[in-house]
Computed example of a mutant assay.
Amino acid sequence: MLDVGIYTLNFALSFLKDEIKNIIATCKKMPSGVDESNGIILEFQKGAFAFLNSSVAAISDRKGVINGTKGYICVDNINNPNSIKAYDKERKLIKDCLVPSQINGFEYEFEACFKALELNKIECDEMNHEEILKMMNLMDRVREKMGVKFIGE
């Protein structure tokens, strides 16, 4: 959850700005008790769902899909996208957006950090402390549902 799982949660919450109503989560644990693979369903107050999975033990396509009533959007790699494609109800490609070339996908984080430091800020506008705490609390809630505990908890 705290390694690759954050990417799926961040992807979902970057589109779904609603309060989470319910969390269903399960995982396969390693002998150490750390989650190796997980499946998560987030149900939101206004009726949307996010179906997420991640694993440190399997190779994934890293795709993200946002489904809607008028079509869907495919992001080829939620960690470091190269393209974002929009399709209509008939599954016809209606827009193909190329993303600027990146090395590893962390460029945006570095740029935001440098910008904040240059402005003598203690947090980034792109993801402020409130958003970071919200995500950490969500990961704690998901871990609780999966029965993953750390030493001292």
Rank of each mutant, 00 (worst) to 15 (best):
I20L: 12
F44Y: 12
A112G: 05
G33A: 00
F106S: 14
D125K: 09
N79Y: 07
Q102P: 08
V34I: 03
M146K: 02
N79L: 14
K28S: 04
N120L: 14
E107H: 09
H129G: 05
Y87A: 10
P100F: 05
N10A: 02
Y108T: 07
G39S: 11
I122P: 04
C113Q: 02
V148F: 09
M136D: 11
F49W: 05
A112N: 02
Y7R: 03
V75G: 10
D3F: 05
G5E: 04
R143E: 13
K134C: 00
K21M: 08
M139V: 06
K70W: 01
G71E: 02
G5F: 08
N67Y: 11
L2G: 15
K121T: 04
E19Y: 14
G64F: 00
N120H: 06
D35F: 12
E131D: 03
M135H: 04
L2K: 15
G71I: 05
G147E: 01
L138G: 03
H129M: 08
I122C: 10
A112T: 00
I103P: 07
L9M: 03
I78L: 01
G152L: 15
E109A: 15
R143V: 13
I84T: 13
C97V: 15
M139Y: 05
S32W: 06
Y108D: 06
L119P: 12
G64T: 03
E43S: 01
T69M: 09
M136E: 13
D96W: 08
E43F: 05
K92Y: 04
D35M: 13
C97P: 13
D96Q: 06
N128C: 08
E90W: 14
Q102G: 15
Y72H: 05
N22M: 09
C124Q: 10
L2H: 10
E111H: 08
D96I: 14
K70E: 01
K145C: 12
A12G: 14
L117F: 02
I24M: 08
L117P: 06
K145F: 01
A112D: 02
I132S: 00
K89Q: 10
D140W: 11
T8G: 07
H129A: 07
I20C: 10
F11V: 14
R91G: 11
F44T: 12
M136Y: 05
D18Q: 08
D61M: 03
D61G: 07
S60V: 06
A116S: 05
R141N: 06
M1T: 03
L9V: 08
A12K: 07
I151H: 12
L117T: 03
A57N: 14
M135R: 02
L13G: 04
F110G: 08
K92R: 14
V75N: 09
V75H: 08
R62I: 07
G68A: 02
S55L: 08
G39C: 04
I20Q: 12
I24G: 09
I23A: 13
L2T: 15
N79Q: 11
L16P: 00
E109M: 15
E90A: 12
C74W: 06
M1S: 14
V4R: 03
M136H: 05
E111R: 04
K115W: 01
T26H: 01
N53Q: 04
I23M: 12
N53M: 07
T69R: 03
K89I: 07
C113H: 01
I94V: 12
T8N: 13
D61H: 10
K149Q: 00
V148M: 02
G105M: 14
